[in-house]
Design a protein around this nucleic acid. Structure first.
Lengths: 245, 245
DNA sequence: CGCACCTTTGAATGAGATCAAAGATGGTGG
DNA sequence: CCACCATCTTTGATCTCATTCAAAGGTGCG
């Protein structure tokens, strides 16, 4: 997995001015390393910063009263995580490192300054948040209205697409999914046992291959069709005019 | 239901400067009326504007390949709807009027100008989008991990809370839910038949009262507890400094 | 007044959960 | 280097919540 920042992600959508690149570099000045499995922030904890993921995977989960949890989002390099802390002054989900992770904490004052000085970057942040919202809406409809098999297929499609976006190429050999079947279940609203059965069914039907925790999508087209998966990574940011600087 | 704009909503969180109020008034200059049941924009349709709801309810739904749909969001006066059109240049959900609706279409250039001239309003828009994302995450965990009964209870709690926010007071007589049980099912990931059974069970247990399509929450505390419902309407916007103007 | 749509109720079915236990796998310390 | 233990995967049997199918009341509107 490439070490990739927000600047690289945004540069895919617009050509950054030098001043904008500087402003982003300022945001990503601090670094923090987190060990695989460690909890970065717990739900309800006071939190006023969000994170730019530079390396590794995170997930964000909501814990229910009965001890179960729902994994709401996976975060990959170039993603922002924990944005709701800016809005509520506390974490609304528990952020956990799926692999060893490097990230940049960004505190509120920096965000305020960014909105003030760099309107185009602010608009891009806004668009990332809106795109994220759309991705969640897609997942909501998947969990509310599709079969267990389709949900697992959809998650695999999504992970593949987002790893690609983060620059972690397949190399024809698929990609490593460092998740337990229990975690996949928590993300798809299924039990670990049923996830296992669905994965084997997908292997059986020649849609995916597995070796250890490495997964290869053998027929991504059909997989995406069965899953009803829509890639939402293409955002249209050209309409925001750059500012001189 | 009060005729309420975005300015009124934002003014709950910060004291708007005259210049900010003017900028918002500009956004809300155009008005459009939509009849109950009418589709405002269909999925996939080219769209570059979002909407500020002034009066009535909308819902946003994603349609699946098999003819089923998932209602992703309800929009009330003071809410913004269809923001993803700004990001993708097309609608990602079908917006339908639940009641007769009055709204203000806001085109991209106005948004671009707002981000440039009114950084604090831009930040508030960003925060609304992030809050919306959090609300979706809550619903995702509800649909993925809770019982049918809890999902229905949660939807009722949410509608009540958001109507209150929109200034449609209960007046002790509850509130009108102009949704069919099929629509409630599409929002909760259930069938209409099962929604019916859950609603009657809630009545049976003394948690809600019903008369026609008017619903009253008889024991909101217990209802919220059973539903695992969290109110997310309190956002903390004080950290964004106002700009002179 | 009649039709279209919505709600309500019952019975049968099924997808996924739960319970239980047997293989794999991998990391750790001796 | 190997043995052990914890964790994860796999498999089978049973159970349950929600769906599906079907049909009988209500309700409001044209």
């Amino acid at each position: 997995m490439r070490n990739l920042g927000l600047a690289d992600r945004l540069a895919r959508h617009v050509a950054l001015t030098p001043a904008e690149a500087d402003a982003l570099a300022l945001l990503e000045r601090d670094r923090r390393s987190v060990r695989r499995g460690a909890v970065l922030v717990g739900e309800q904890a006071d939190a006023r910063e969000f994170y730019i993921v530079r390396d590794g995977w995170l997930h964000g989960a909501v814990h229910l009263g009965d001890g179960s949890r729902q994994i709401v989002h996976f975060h990959f390099p170039g993603d922002v995580a924990g944005v709701s802390a800016l809005v509520f002054g506390r974490a609304t989900e528990t952020l956990t490192a799926v692999t060893d992770v490097v990230l940049c904490p960004v505190d509120r004052p920096y965000v305020a300054r960014l909105f003030h000085d760099q309107p185009r970057l602010a608009a891009l942040l806004f668009m990332l948040a809106a795109a994220d919202r759309t991705a969640l809406a897609d997942r909501l409809s998947g969990i509310g209205r599709t079969s267990a098999r389709a949900r697992v297929a959809s998650l695999l499609c999504d992970i593949a697409a987002r790893l690609r976006l983060a620059g972690a190429e397949d190399e024809g050999g698929g990609f490593v999914v460092p998740l337990t079947q229990e975690e996949i279940g928590d993300a798809t609203g299924l039990t670990a046992v049923h996830v296992n059965r669905m994965m084997r069914a997908l292997v059986q039907d020649g849609l995916i291959g597995r070796a250890g925790n490495r997964v290869r999508l053998l027929d991504e087209e059909r997989l995406a069709r069965e899953a009803g998966y829509t890639d939402r990574s293409r955002i249209d940011a050209g309409w925001i005019p750059a500012v001189a600087g």
